[in-house]
Design a protein around this nucleic acid. Sequence first.
DNA 1: TACTAAAACAGTAATAATTCCTATTATTAT
DNA 2: ATAATAATAGGAATTATTACTGTTTTAGTA
Lengths: 127, 127
Amino acid sequence: MQKRSRQRELLLEILCGTTCHPDADWVFSKMREKMPNVSLGTVYRNLARLSEEGVILKLDVGQGADRFDGCNDPHYHLACRCCGAVVDVPMAYTPALNDTAKKESGCEIESHSLLFFGKCPSCTGIK
Amino acid sequence: MQKRSRQRELLLEILCGTTCHPDADWVFSKMREKMPNVSLGTVYRNLARLSEEGVILKLDVGQGADRFDGCNDPHYHLACRCCGAVVDVPMAYTPALNDTAKKESGCEIESHSLLFFGKCPSCTGIK
DNA sequence: TACTAAAACAGTAATAATTCCTATTATTAT
DNA sequence: ATAATAATAGGAATTATTACTGTTTTAGTA
């Protein structure tokens, strides 16, 4: 039987209160500000659980730690190669890509992830 | 000044001789069969170098070790959630996705990676 | 409110994947 | 052949994450 925990609720509040797509360590620091004894294991365990439940999204951006997104509508992201930021890309989510892949390959396709690499709004134009 | 090495040449020969999208450790084992003293550091260093040079592709499949592909034409992959295999998805590479993302976000987009999750041909139909 | 079962936690150890370091070896230009 | 330096082998170190264990918290029940 599933039980609530103050730790998980705080985690979700913090994650939903930012748009920075943080990693586990950032969430851990933020949680420590309000709950000084929370442990990193708890952060990882709850991030894993919430993403398995579909409450949050887990983003693998190809290098460094996994990032998480409190907004769970499927959508796409850009990883900035200048500053490392991960930002939302406001283009339509395209489930039809799954159908195309299925038709071409004959495989059962369940989902996809599309990640762009480039420069985020604040780095665009520099370097 | 860049120098050739027998290690790097063997690595490339092995990677181009398989379609299994192996990880560093698999490449290391195969190399050891022909070159028993090769070190894992050398494998990692050359995989990184060759992928930076664009000679091979580095694939991040969301869990476990990075995978590598000796075929460097941009193309898409499926990660099988049953057996862990990574297989090519024979659908057209779509650079237009970059243009769409650019138009919608105003960001500079350099590239994208599209990864499907589902079942590979040998696992399709089971479970 | 008190009691109990088990879910969740804190703190720590362990693991997996990868990178870094240093002395030695191999490659290439002369 | 010699010299300069790129690359290596082997191992240590780092990073991100997971696993373990004894304690605390939660929630159902009396």
